[in-house]
């Protein structure tokens, strides 16, 4: 099942669009009274957002056709135009300059335990946790939204769940930051945790009550993701062959140094440029193999260049 953020955020170029309209009201430091004054206008936009969200979430990015994509983009453009003409009061709000999808910071579970006091009135976590005003938070990471048995969820969260929303570090952080913006009809009456580090700490604490990847390898990540940005001058990078030799030890877990190729292709004696291009094709998920996408995905451009330099040296 795709993550909510996979469906909603990347690919369509709607990252800014879908949430910007909403986040316009959550700008840090804005006066609360002013915020509430614009509530009526806000609700109108929220309704639009919900509808747009539902439409986008219907798209399955794995099977989406070019026509469907174009159609979605057109509808979104129309929505954007309406947003641009939003009512007064709403208009005054500046779009949040911060990135919409929060950067996942490394969290401190101990600090998070203290922060959890804000949640404890409604949520239980840990041994014997039960549903209260809110659902219990055991095994939260990786679970589908609105899926704890015997808990009555809002229609808003149930709809998001039907659209594939799952709780991971990214979606949880967005939700906790501003629950009403994330799911307009949620019954979680919490103003939101605005500080990204606080959220990371809280989530690090909650993460300890979910499956551990050492026991279930497919369990959710616990670390901050690596940076996957692509440098435009990749091919011009000059690699460090000694670093490449070290990095190559990761390759030889599967690819035989002897050049044998039963089941897994040989990577011996490739021209340097083809090698770099292939690695970036995996990194950008153009080539399909999951293992290679994973391995290449966290190699920096310099590291790919280093590997290429090492393999090129071997040819001499």
């Amino acid at each position: 099942m795709p993550r909510f953020s996979d469906v909603i955020l990347p690919g369509l170029g709607v990252t800014g669009l879908v949430l910007t309209g909403a986040l316009a009201f959550s700008t840090a430091g804005r006066d609360r009274a002013e915020f509430e004054a614009s509530e009526a206008a806000l609700n109108a936009v929220r309704a639009e957002l919900d509808a747009a969200e539902a439409r986008i979430a219907e798209l399955n990015l794995a099977t989406v056709t070019a026509e469907e994509l174009e159609d979605a983009m057109e509808r979104l453009a129309a929505f954007e135009a309406r947003l641009a003409a939003r009512p007064e009061g709403v208009d005054e709000a500046e779009p949040d300059p911060a990135p919409v999808v929060s950067v996942m910071l490394a969290g401190n579970a101990e600090t998070g335990e203290t922060l959890f006091r804000e949640c404890r009135a409604c949520h239980q976590v840990g041994a014997g946790a039960k549903n209260g005003v809110g659902p219990h938070l055991n095994l939260l990471f990786g679970r589908a939204a609105a899926s704890v048995p015997d808990f009555r969820y809002s229609d808003s969260l149930k709809r998001a769940a039907a659209n594939g929303l799952e709780w991971h570090a990214d979606t949880l952080s967005q939700y906790i930051e501003d629950p009403r913006t994330f799911a307009s009809g949620t019954r979680m009456s919490y103003a939101g945790m605005k500080d990204a580090q606080d959220r990371a700490d809280l989530l690090a604490y909650l993460r300890t009550f979910s499956d551990d990847p050492s026991n279930i390898p497919e369990a959710d990540p616990t670390a901050q993701g690596t940076d996957h940005e692509v440098d435009p001058e990749i091919l011009a990078l000059k690699g460090d062959p000694e670093y490449g030799e070290y990095l190559s030890s990761e390759c030889t877990t599967c690819h035989q140094a002897s050049g044998g190729d039963d089941g897994i292709p040989s990577i011996v004696l490739w021209p340097e440029e083809s090698f770099v291009m292939a690695m970036h094709a995996y990194k950008d998920q153009v080539r399909p193999n999951q293992v290679m996408q994973m391995i290449a995905g966290r190699l920096s451009n310099d590291e790919i260049a280093a590997l290429a330099a090492y393999f090129a040296d071997l040819e001499k």
Partner: peptide
């Protein structure tokens, strides 16, 4: 792929 990996890791 797993067969290839086996040959690779044992080497």
């Amino acid at each position: 792929e797993s067969e290839g990996w086996y040959t690779g890791i044992t080497a």
